[in-house]
Amino acid sequence: MHEMALAESILTTLQEQARQHDYARVRTVWLEIGPLASVEEESLRFSFDVVVKGTLADGARLEIETSPAQAWCLSCCKSVAVVRRFDACPECGGHQLQMTSGDELRIKELEVD
């Protein structure tokens, strides 16, 4: 349910950037959302569409990029790919993993006019 708060936060950023970069309309928003960012993509899309109604981003398209999460295995001393937070290290089977990426929640780029 916090996707609504995230959508509002995205809109605020779009409005602030509009002053800085001098644009009137937002056509597309590229987001980078990690697989561990606790964001439900469909819920975020729905919330975004609702929140931007009647604003400079009304009808804007959301492009969401996701890259696999990485963790540092303390036992293997190397970076490994994981799907979930409690996955074992795919190399040694241990759980001494420190997540190094996967919780990204970033606005990367905008298409504006």
Binding site: T13, H21, R27, I107, V112, D113
Partner: peptide, 11 residues
């Protein structure tokens, strides 16, 4: 239309 790089954390 033009592209704007912003690289800003949503939070």
């Amino acid at each position: 239309t033009r592209m704007v790089q912003i690289e800003q954390d949503i939070l």
